[in-house]
Amino acid sequence: MAERTYPWKVAWITGASGAICGEVARRLADAGVQVAATARPSERLDALAAASPNITAFPADVLDVEALKACAAKVEAALGPIELALLGAGMYVPFDIRNIDAGGFGKTMALNVDGVLNGVAAVLPAMLNRGEGHLAIMGSLFGYAGWPGNGGYGASKAAVINLAESLKLELRGTGVDLTLINPGFVDTPLNASYDPKKKLFVMSKERCARKILEKLPKRPYEIAFPPQVELFLKTVRNLPRAASFPLVRWFIKATGS
């Protein structure tokens, strides 16, 4: 089988120490892409950088917008223009209506939403000035519909989906493309605390990364998978609430989740 090639020379990945983004980083590097891996300093980030000569660690906190802008500038000074920015930092905190973790909710919103916006702010101006670039934002299919135990994470990803839609409309004609990546459940430490019975059609990080990189070079607006979860949740989103809420409750009861 011929080695896969990609249209980007330099890719900047935030949340690179996470399971999905780390796997994407390794696959891009194996294909010859220069990958700038950004996350807070950690052994996982160091290990990722040590895995390939094509991966360089650029530690930064995505919640610090000025530090992230400085980080993006360092990447471009060291490796060249960022052609692909995959903004993937994220977290999940369980949501229990009987014991609401307001602090966890706030942290989830900050990392999953502000972390993405800060990444956009760090890289988009240079892309617009060049008249080319590709933003890829990590959302979730669970941003399309409410789901039990998922109040914080789902709310944050709903915000990301709305942000992506708004950006897509404004980026038309600029030469900068935007792709929203919406996985369903992926078997990662991120959602290890989520009830396993509620993880619909759970996927491995390897399969998830492969699906992302199969489609990302074509620059679609959305990459969503698995199709069964996409169809169900988007159908639920588009139904009248008088129909969608009973459908979700029926599904949960039917699947024992």
Rank of each mutant, 00 (worst) to 15 (best):
Thr5Asn: 13
Thr5Cys: 13
Thr5Met: 12
Lys9Cys: 04
Val10His: 11
Val10Met: 10
Gly15Arg: 05
Ser17Pro: 10
Asp30Gln: 15
Val35Arg: 08
Ala36Arg: 00
Asp46Gly: 03
Ala47Arg: 06
Pro53Trp: 00
Pro53Tyr: 02
Asn54Phe: 05
Asn54Gly: 12
Ile55Ser: 00
Thr56Phe: 00
Asp61Gln: 05
Asp61Lys: 04
Val65Ala: 15
Val65Asp: 12
Ala67Tyr: 10
Ala67Ile: 02
Leu68Gly: 12
Ala70Ser: 14
Cys71Ala: 12
Ala72Asn: 10
Lys74Tyr: 06
Lys74Pro: 03
Leu87Tyr: 03
Gly88Val: 03
Gly90Val: 04
Phe95Ala: 15
Phe95Gln: 12
Asp96Ala: 05
Ile100Tyr: 08
Phe105Ser: 04
Lys107Arg: 14
Asp114Gln: 11
Val116Lys: 03
Ala121Arg: 12
Ala122Val: 03
Ala126Glu: 11
Leu141Asn: 09
Ala145Arg: 11
Pro148Glu: 07
Asn150Met: 14
Lys157Leu: 10
Ala158Glu: 07
Val160Arg: 05
Ile161Arg: 15
Ile161Ser: 12
Ile161Gly: 10
Asn162Gln: 14
Ala164Gln: 05
Glu165Pro: 12
Ser166Lys: 08
Leu167Lys: 08
Leu171Arg: 07
Leu171Ala: 07
Arg172Gln: 14
Arg172Pro: 03
Arg172Lys: 13
Arg172Gly: 06
Gly173Val: 01
Thr174Arg: 00
Gly175Phe: 03
Asp177Gln: 10
Asn182Ala: 03
Asn182Cys: 15
Asn182Lys: 05
Pro183Cys: 03
Val186Ile: 14
Val186Asn: 03
Thr188Phe: 09
Pro189Tyr: 03
Tyr194Asn: 13
Tyr194Met: 11
Asp195Pro: 10
Pro196Asp: 10
Val202Phe: 01
Met203His: 05
Leu213Tyr: 06
Glu214Ser: 11
Glu214Ile: 06
Glu214Val: 05
Lys215Val: 04
Leu216Val: 02
Lys218Ser: 11
Arg219Pro: 09
Pro220Cys: 07
Tyr221Phe: 15
Ala224Gly: 09
Leu231Tyr: 01
Phe232Val: 12
Leu233Asn: 10
Leu233Phe: 14
Trp250Lys: 14
Phe251Cys: 00
Ile252Tyr: 13
Ile252Ala: 14
Ile252Leu: 15
Ala254Ser: 14
Gly256Ile: 04
